[in-house]
Amino acid sequence: MAARKTTKKPNVSADELKKYYRDMLLVRRFEEKAGQLYGMGLIGGFCHLYIGQEAVVVGLEATAEEGDKRITTYRDHGHMLACGMDPDGVMAELTGREGGYSKGKGGSMHMFSREKDFYGGHGIVGANVPLGAGLALADQYKGNGRVTFTYFGDGAANQGQVYETFNMAALWKLPVVFVIENNQYAMGTSQKRSTSTPDIYTRGAAFGIPGEAVDGMDVLAVKEAGEKAVAHCRKGDGPYILEVKTYRYRGHSMSDPAKYRTREEVQKMRDEKDCIEHVRELLLEGKHASEEDLKAIDKEIKDVVNKSAEFAKESAEPDVSELWTDIYVEDTREDA
């Protein structure tokens, strides 16, 4: 693959770089495996892969602290792996098994982890934006200094409730980082054809929310911008918008014939801008890792992913009694 010009020396340690490499590779290999299982009929329904966008979640997770929250839309596998959720549980949810994060009742688009402060996984485009602001409102109410990362796409950025939320988040100075993952296509509609002004990050200006565009194929640039945004929120200065310019290599979902863009366009991004290749080069050029070291990481990731696929196939389908559970939270109050 052609080398990408690295404009500046990375301001991170070798260990951090290796961690980003590993985390991004985990997302990519996991998604490739998910695509494969889908092809075999083991995963049903919709399945939206994150391949190409890995630097976004890995760069931002590098800025998160214990207790910070994250919420996203339906292209959510990468967010879950990046925040430390167990690949076994994610894959088993994709196959609709009892070992999945939602016991097989949510599927690809609806997974959650209280433990990792991951609040979904939402199938309605744009709906997670006020939900994320609400999580931030709860943190502000409690005064705990936590920040919520609210991810959505360039497509969701045209939903009305996003702007309702911008207004209230700015008005009440909610500690929320709005991360617009602009992968340039809302399903099959390019940004040019759907969005009146190209720079989505400027849309917060009307509400007094600072925003900036970030190279989403560069994990270090994402991390740097994320640190600034998080500091702004934690200080109590209100929301911040990051428009992260990224690219998805695969179709919108598995059943996407991808006639809205050329094969050359995709290949060019893969060859010239790939986020994993970028960190790989930084590691090798900086002599932070040898080819053998990286091969060992590749092997380690492959094993993790294969194990998750095995788990997802072997885990049983949910017991039929699960049909009737979790509709309501049991009321444990004494006077209930």
Binding site: Y119, A133, G134, L137, Y141, M168
Partner: peptide, 14 residues
Amino acid sequence: HGFAGIGVGAAWGG
């Protein structure tokens, strides 16, 4: 639409 969603998020937030 917006404040109903914020309310739900706040409920998830405790």
